[in-house]
Amino acid sequence: MYDSIILRSVARLMLPILLMLAVFMLLRGHNLPGGGFIGGLVASCAIILQLVAFGPEAARRVLRVNYLGLAAFGVFFAALWGLPSLIGGQPYMTSLWIPEPIPGVGKIGTPVLFDLGVFFGVIGVTTQIALLLAEERRPRETHDAGTPAT
């Protein structure tokens, strides 16, 4: 198991901060730089930091969910929020907004929830790809002969 005490301690400390940063980026995406896509990427960076520091198993435990399922759910959730406008007779994915903003969170509308779907989708996709690559068995040929490193 790759171990560097220093890296691990920093990584353990950074995880909550980064996840908070990701959610922060997501929620205020509409007015300031951020949004589902960037938030998702920042969150995946946090999880990949765990992967680098602790290895694939730890990274999987971060969100305790199957990332492939998360990606699929994200895309489904995003698509879902295109439908309400159909009920209103408008074309697919026209945005609908709640009249007054909810204090503290701001205006909620179908685009924001669509963004949330994108957020989950991006996390699922990026993290799952990283994990798949990390879990590939490595044909070791330099230092130790053939035993898988992780």
Binding site: L7, L21, M25, L32, V42, I48, V52
Partner: peptide, 17 residues
């Protein structure tokens, strides 16, 4: 400034990886 924050994080992640 927000962009800079994320750049700092990425710098660290990149170097460590």
């Amino acid at each position: 400034i927000d962009a800079v924050i994320v750049v700092a994080v990425l710098g660290f992640l990149g170097t460590v990886a």
